[in-house]
Design a protein around this nucleic acid. Sequence first.
DNA 1: CAGTATCCATTTCGATACTG
DNA 2: CAGTATCGAAATGGATACTG
Lengths: 223, 223
Amino acid sequence: MTQYGQFCPVAKAMELLDERWTMLIVRELIAGSHTFGDLQRGVPKMSPTLLSTRLRSLARAGVIDRHEQGTRVYYTLTQAGRELQSVVEAIGQWGIRWMPELGEEDFDPHLLMWDVQRNVDLEALPPGRTVLQFSFRDRPSGQRDWWLVCTQAEVDLCDFDPGHPVSGRIDTPLALFVRVWRGDVKWDQAFRSGELTVDGPTAVRRNLPRWLTRSDFAPVPRP
Amino acid sequence: MTQYGQFCPVAKAMELLDERWTMLIVRELIAGSHTFGDLQRGVPKMSPTLLSTRLRSLARAGVIDRHEQGTRVYYTLTQAGRELQSVVEAIGQWGIRWMPELGEEDFDPHLLMWDVQRNVDLEALPPGRTVLQFSFRDRPSGQRDWWLVCTQAEVDLCDFDPGHPVSGRIDTPLALFVRVWRGDVKWDQAFRSGELTVDGPTAVRRNLPRWLTRSDFAPVPRP
DNA sequence: CAGTATCCATTTCGATACTG
DNA sequence: CAGTATCGAAATGGATACTG
C-alpha cells in the first residue's frame, strides 16, 4: 500500500481501498462469501497469490477477520468492513449510471451464473425441485449451457447436465442476459425483442423474473 | 486503466476510480479547485506529469470537462463528476472512522493551511481585515509560520510575514492542529491541554473556532 | 481445499528538466 | 501558468507450479 502523505480521511481510506481488486473482494464478502474458494469464484481473474496478499492487507487494516474452524478457514467482515457497504453501494450506483459501456471481456458467463445462483429468490419458487437451464447461444460449448438446480433450501449451479427434468430453458445471447441482470434492459424488452426466449410451461415463463432476481444495482435510475 | 473483465458496476467504476490519486483529484474538484495550479496544491506530492495523465483519464471517462478561456485552462466536473460526491463522502466518512492512525509523513503544514484557507467562514469574521498567524512550533522555519489575511471578500495565505498587524496568533504542534481540523480532538480539549494557545484579544480567542471551520468530516461520529 | 513459491514482463511512478 | 519530455528505479502483478 503506497502512502499519499495526506491527513485527509479520503486519502487515508484510499491508501487501502485503491489497491487493485480490493473493493471487489469487499463486494464479495458483503455478498456473503466467506472462504478462499468462494472469494476466488467472485474474482476468477485474480491469481491466488494476489488474493492471498489482499486478504492479508484487509485483515491488517482491520476490515476482515481470518479464523480457522477445524480444517476450514473463514473470512468475515469486522464492523469496519461491514461499514464499507455504504462505500460499495455508492460506487456501484455511480458505476451503473456512468460506466454503462461493457467490453467483450466483461461478459463472463461463469461470473454471471455465480451471481445469478446466489441471488435466486428461494421463497418465490414453487414447492419441490425447479431446474432452470441457460443456453448462451453465442458462446462456445463449455460456456454455453448451465443448470440451476433449485430447492427451497439451496441452489446448485452446474456446467453439465445434472440429469433432472428441466422446468424451463432460457435461450439468449450472453450480452443480453447480462444487460437484463444489470437492469440495463427490462425482462419485457428482452422477451419482446425475441432474442431471449424461455421454453417451458406458461407458469415458468411468467414467474421466471421473480425467481431470478437481478443485480442489486438494477433498480438504480439511469441518467 | 487496467480492466477487471467483470460486468459488475462496482468493477467498472473501480477501473477508473482505483487508479492512484484519482479520488483525491476528484475531491479537489469537489472542493472547488478548477485550475491545474490549484489542483496541484491539493496533491503536492504528485508530479505534474501524472496529474496531467489523470486529468486526461477523467476527461475521457466523462467525469470532467477541460476548457480553455482565453489563455487560462479550467477543469470542471460534469454531471457524472458531481455525482461522485456521494462516493467521496462515503469514503471520507469511513476513513475518518476506521483509518484514524496518521504517520509522520501525513502531517504536511502546506496542505493543512491550503485546506484551512479555503474553508475560512468569511461571514463569521468581523468587518475589516483579520490577520491570523499560525506557528507550528515543532516545525523547522519555512514550515513553521503562516499567515491568513482575511477580508469579507477573500482569504490570502502567506508563508512570510505580510506586514499587517496580527489579530491573533495560534501556537501549536502541527499534529495537534491537524487533529483539531479533522475533528479527532475538540477545540476545547486542545485549549485545555495547554498545547494549543491563542495570543490575542479575548474576542479573537473566543471566536476563532467559528472562523476556522474544520474538515467536512470532523462531525462524523467515531466508533 | 487453502493457500505459497518463484520468476520475470510490464507497468507505474518519481525526479528533474524543459517549453510555449 | 500549464503543462510535456525523458529516464531509470521500484513496484506490481500474471503465469505456473507446488505444498500440507
